[in-house]
């Protein structure tokens, strides 16, 4: 198979064509945020940048979206479907910890109920991933079977070369089709451009299997009494997370006889999240809610969907107002698991 490289300028030309073809092009900007680009020049690709403060999940699973609108019509109620933007979504420059999130959350959106809203966007998308040359004390992708070069979730993968060039890897048939379609912008790789390697390997922090086994056996462990006690119960962690996918369904009135039903982001750290209509709340304190967050990510999702609900991007920890660090919590569990698996 032919190997290709592409220049940053040509990537921007591709972005331009996509925009002209009414695609929604999402890329990172000079502010290091994922943004729906208005023009290709806004695109900035920096493999050495810290992961953006928010993930790109909002482009597949928006923070709020209408399910339907209603309007009272005498004694009847008329329902209206929202107009859906069916444009193709192209993400350019996703880090491996971003790209990997989509196949992970796709499982929950296609488990019993098929979520058309998510699927219509995900099925009609193309993810161009890029190797990551960043690492800090919050990163732990390689503890979860991934790596800064992992192509999970990407259709096309870029590896940085010298002089603003990228080596192009076609990962999926969708990716191959894309490279074929924009062939004129890709050049044959003659091996002239030096590849830019990561400076250092990421350290390994914990053994996931040990962590999982501990979680399987220690729902009542006293570790949970203090693990999340400083958590303030906001949803910063969940809302910037690429894999947190919980939502709430609400009816909202607009005027006296009309309104909409909407699907909004929700988070397990909110006290209302599990509050029953009776007033009973099975997770009645922050410690229990924090245990839920860790258990859902590292145990329940694995039990049900054979995936860890975390890509190790570290966003939740970087942004936490009280510096709760998910990696340090999992490391503590890892060290606890070395001692015993029994319930204390």
């Amino acid at each position: 198979m032919e190997e290709y490289i592409v220049s940053l300028d040509n990537l921007k030309k591709i972005a331009d064509e996509l925009l002209n073809n009414h695609c929604r092009v999402i890329g990172t900007t000079s502010e290091n945020k994922f943004k729906e680009l208005n023009y290709a020049e806004e695109l900035v690709l920096n493999p050495g940048a810290v992961p953006t403060s928010s993930s790109f999940k909002e482009f597949f699973f928006p923070k709020t979206e209408p399910l339907f609108f209603y309007k009272q019509n005498h004694s009847n109620v008329d329902l209206f479907n929202p107009i859906q933007d069916k444009s193709k979504i192209v993400i350019i420059g996703a880090k491996p910890c971003d790209a990997a999130s989509l196949p992970i959350i796709s499982k929950v959106f296609n488990w019993d109920y098929k979520d058309d809203l998510f699927n219509s966007r995900y099925d009609n998308s193309l993810i161009i991933g890029m190797s990551c040359h960043y690492s800090d004390e919050f990163c732990f992708c390689n503890d979860l079977g991934s790596s800064p070069e992992n192509m999970k979730g990407s259709d096309v993968f870029l590896k940085p070369l010298a002089d603003n060039y990228f080596k192009v890897v076609s990962v999926t048939p969708k990716g191959a089709e894309f490279i074929n379609e924009y062939q004129k912008y890709f050049e044959k790789d003659l091996g002239k451009n030096k590849s830019l390697e990561r400076k250092e390997e990421n350290p390994k922090h914990f053994d996931y299997d040990k962590v999982k086994t501990w979680l399987d056996n220690n729902f009542e462990n006293k570790f949970w009494d203090t693990a999340g006690e400083m958590c303030l119960g906001c949803a910063q962690c969940a809302f910037v997370c690429p894999t947190c996918h919980c939502f709430d369904i609400v009816d909202e009135q607009n005027g006296s006889c009309a309104g909409r039903r909407a699907k909004n982001w929700d988070a397990c750290q909110f006290s209302l999240f599990t509050k029953h209509a009776s007033g009973h709340n099975p997770r009645d304190n922050q410690e229990k809610r924090y245990r839920q967050r860790i258990s859902h990510k590292f145990k329940y999702y694995m039990d049900k969907f054979d995936e860890v609900l975390c890509t190790g991007c570290g966003r939740c920890s970087r942004g936490c107002p009280v510096s709760l660090d998910i990696l340090q919590i999992v490391e503590e569990i890892n060290s606890l698991s070395g001692n015993s698996n029994s319930i204390q």
Binding site: S54, K63, L232, G233, C234, A235, Q236, A238, F239, N264, W265, A267, F270, L272, P321, V322
Partner: peptide
């Protein structure tokens, strides 16, 4: 994004039930 981090870190936001709830 309605994460309510502003409310949760605020020492003066102590309502047991916030108006949005």
């Amino acid at each position: 994004i309605k994460c309510y981090a502003c409310r949760q870190v605020c020492p003066m936001c102590y309502c047991e039930k916030c108006i949005v709830e």
